[in-house]
Design a protein around this nucleic acid. Structure first.
Length: 309
DNA sequence: TGCCAGGTAATGT
DNA sequence: ACATTACATGGC
């Protein structure tokens, strides 16, 4: 199969051909896909770089992704018949050019697109995304990753990981977290966010918040449902709408995007969050959220070769 | 050390 | 309606 032509099974050449993990390896054809930028751009928190590959957990499955010119080589720890859980997550079927076409043609967007060629939006699990971004407030991305890692390790189900890899855990579901205590959650270093996560987990576990239902609602109604949760405001709700529900017009404004908007569109003059959101809603078009990710990654990674955090 | 981090809720004007 | 502040924790 594809893995023979790509040579991705080279490390298995000592095994009988039939074992050649066809069902654990897949070459996903891609165009305009910068996997490292996408996986490190602060939308998902379970990926770590390992050489030229990226190891992470998607929907409770261990995965190792290796980018090349025209493909992403995916390896899993268990046999896979249908790879849709991964291709849907990576959104490899999205034609990026069609998205970029809708961006406003202004100098700022032009610079951001030129600097972040191939940056993509993922389609994440709603609960994991919601929980992760409840934990994200006033935390650096590296710290969010640490918290999510601890949380998974302590409360998630152990899952099969690849050969010679560290043990791995699924992200804990709302039922499991609803069954913990605030103190146990604080043990994962999430500080004052612990009661927020706990109450969100209970809301979902008890059916007060039905994420499947939210998925089917119009944008405003869906946002209103998310905003009922403690610890979920405009920014976090927009992240969930954008990164999990695929609402590409949802536009999260965090400190970085606020800085990008002020620097690039308002000559560094002060503007309130409300003003920035109103501008964004009017300016960036139907894929405003996608444009937002370009601005975010652009301002975070440019900057004279120093820490891109 | 002091400042800041993919914010939000509570409180004060 | 808008401005300020507390909130845990850790990187730099």
């Amino acid at each position: 199969m594809s893995c023979i032509t790509t040579g991705c099974c080279a490390r298995y050449k000592f095994l009988p051909a039939v074992v050649c993990v066809d069902s654990r390896t897949k070459a996903i054809g891609v165009r305009d896909y910068d996997l490292p930028a996408t996986l490190s751009s602060g939308q998902a928190f379970r990926w770590r770089k390992q050489g030229s590959s990226w190891v992470g957990i998607v929907h409770g499955r261990w995965a190792r992704l290796t980018p090349s010119d025209s493909e992403i080589i995916a390896e899993t720890a268990e046999d896979v018949e249908n790879w849709q859980w991964l291709t849907n997550y990576l959104q490899t079927d999205v034609d990026l050019r069609e998205v970029l076409e809708t961006f406003p043609r202004d100098p700022a967007m032009h610079s951001a697109v030129a600097a972040c060629h191939g940056l993509r939006l993922l389609r994440q699990d709603p609960w994991e995304c919601l929980a992760s971004f409840i934990l994200s407030s006033t935390k650096q991305i590296a710290q969010i990753q640490q918290i999510v890692s601890l949380l998974s390790q302590r409360f998630g189900e152990p899952i099969v990981s690849g050969e010679r890899h560290e043990p791995a855990w699924a992200f804990p579901g709302p039922e499991r977290l609803a069954d913990t205590t605030e103190e146990a959650l604080r043990g994962c270093k999430m500080g004052f966010r612990a009661p927020f996560l706990l109450s969100a987990a209970r809301a979902v576990a008890e059916g007060k918040l039905d994420l499947k239902h939210v998925d089917g609602l119009p944008l405003q109604s869906a946002r209103a449902e998310l905003l009922k949760l403690k610890g979920v405001g405009e920014k976090v709700s927009n992240c969930v709408l954008l990164f999990a529900f695929g609402r590409q017009d949802a536009f999260p404004v965090d400190v970085w995007v606020a800085k990008a908007l002020r620097d690039l569109y308002f000559a560094r003059r002060k503007r309130s969050l409300k003003q920035l959101q109103a501008f964004a809603a009017a300016h960036f078009g139907p894929n405003a959220g996608y444009a937002q990710q370009y601005l975010f990654h652009y301002v975070r990674t440019k900057g004279d070769g120093r820490t891109s955090r």
